[in-house]
């Protein structure tokens, strides 16, 4: 928002709430940067689906909860 930057607080909170689940943390940060980069209309559905596939593949289910 501010010159394309993401609120540091959000990034830190995502890290804190993800509790070392790096895939979830990076996935959400990735989405935030995508959203910042595309404030207008864009093909978000494809990007989101692609990223879910990509990150979930590397994701260890057992780290969940």
């Amino acid at each position: 928002m501010n010159e394309g930057k993401i609120n540091e607080q959000i990034l830190n909170s995502i890290k804190e709430v993800s509790k070392d689940d790096m895939e979830i943390e990076n996935f959400l940060k990735d989405l935030l940067f995508e959203e910042i980069e595309h404030p207008g209309r864009w093909q978000w559905r494809d990007i989101y689906s692609k990223k879910i596939k990509e990150y979930s593949e590397r994701w260890d289910n057992n780290s969940e909860n």
């Binding site: 909170s13 995502i14 709430v17 689940d21 895939e23 979830i24 959400l28 979930s56 289910n61 969940e64």
Partner: peptide
């Protein structure tokens, strides 16, 4: 299921954040 679980958890983290 893995994708759904991943997506659900990401959604949960986003809401808590």
């Amino acid at each position: 299921k893995k994708q759904i679980d991943f997506c659900s958890k990401a959604l949960d983290v986003a809401k808590k954040t």
